[in-house]
């Protein structure tokens, strides 16, 4: 069997802080196959962005990493030194929320896309620029040749994010990590960018890890979902299953907390309280202090256990139908 494009096994990430160690990611495992989109969803501080930075090898030196990150079967974390060198931008690429901070203001859009092609594909400057213009046209930038000569500040937010996508996909990476790629954009532009990402993924078979807080985006664009809470995966399932039969109370609350445009006005489900301080996490299930179903047994950590086909939840109460029967 071919290995998945990305396999993360028991990943832990620990930062040293003034007030003691902070374990931002605590035993996260998932895999992503070619042409598949895995959405990692959760709220601020759940560890979703730290997970993506760990996969990219972009965490600051001194961060303590544990577990395994395998790209095409090859371990990245265990290797001394420069496991990512030559792979970033080529085999794995990333797009960030804020394109303005990720683009170099001193180079034109075309130069920045061409740089990746020169570096990783060894193209001559002229050929690289031609391919860059082609890439800009592929991400539907109108008048690509003219836009290629413009600087980031001359482009709109949506246009900049397209340039970022062109850069990330120029070398046809096997894995693309998109960290809140449309959060800074207006909703009509967001729809354009997400449709574009779907289309490019279908064409190239790139595996995509989509980091987002937006369950609507997950519903429309993900094949599988991992819901994170306080550094751990609370639930993972095929996207359709997650929305039809969520089995973790956090997922249930989160789905009810999103104000929907259909269904009219009414009270939203609300998860009382706030996320725990990861320097002093509660014992056992980290969601227990906010969970309406919690009991004494939740002081022991529930395993991420299978509840259906490809569907696992870290909850002693799953399947939750028992809660309704009671």
């Amino acid at each position: 069997m071919r290995p998945p494009v990305l396999e993360v096994i028991g990943l832990t990430v620990e930062f040293a802080t003034d007030r003691g160690p902070l374990r931002a990611v605590d035993g996260v495992s998932f895999r992503v196959g070619a042409g598949e989109t895995l959405a990692v969803v959760g709220e601020s501080g759940c560890g979703k962005s730290v997970t993506s930075l760990a996969i990219m090898g972009l965490l600051p030196p001194g961060t303590r990493l544990g577990g395994a990150v395998r790209l095409l079967g090859e371990e990245l974390l265990g290797q001394p030194g420069r496991a990512w060198q030559g792979r970033r931008g080529r085999d794995l690429a990333m797009i960030f929320q804020e394109p303005m901070t990720s683009l170099n203001p001193a180079f034109t859009a075309g130069e920045q896309v061409a740089e990746a092609l020169r570096l990783h594909e060894g193209l001559a400057p002229r050929a690289a620029m031609d391919r860059a213009v082609e890439m800009l046209a592929r991400v539907r930038i109108p008048e690509a040749a003219r836009r290629a000569r413009q600087y980031p500040h001359q482009l709109s937010g949506g246009m900049r994010q397209r340039v970022m996508i062109a850069m990330a996909l120029a070398c046809r990476p096997r894995l693309l990590i998109a960290d809140e790629p449309t959060t800074a954009l207006d909703v009509t532009v967001q729809a354009q960018i997400l449709a574009l990402l779907d289309e490019l993924k279908r064409e190239t078979g790139t595996a995509v890890v989509l980091i987002t807080h937006d369950l609507g985006v997950v519903a429309d664009h993900a094949d599988r979902v991992a819901v994170m809470y306080a550094g751990r995966i609370a639930e993972t399932a095929p996207a359709d299953t997650l929305f039809a039969r969520p089995e973790h109370p956090y997922t249930v609350g989160l789905l009810g907390a999103v104000p929907a445009i259909e269904g009219g006005a009414g009270r939203l489900a609300s998860i009382e309280g706030t996320v725990p301080d990861l320097r002093r996490p509660p014992p056992g299930c980290r969601f227990a202090p906010r969970c309406p179903f919690a009991g004494r047994d939740c002081e022991a950590q529930p395993p991420l256990a299978e509840v259906g086909a490809g569907h696992a939840a870290a909850c002693w109460r799953a399947p939750l139908d028992r809660m309704l029967a009671a």
């Binding site: 039969r245 009810g256 139908d321």
Partner: peptide, 13 residues
């Protein structure tokens, strides 16, 4: 999620 999800969410209401 249908009725099941709505009933579960009422615990958060």
């Amino acid at each position: 999620g249908g009725e099941r999800l709505r009933r579960l969410q009422s615990f958060f209401g």
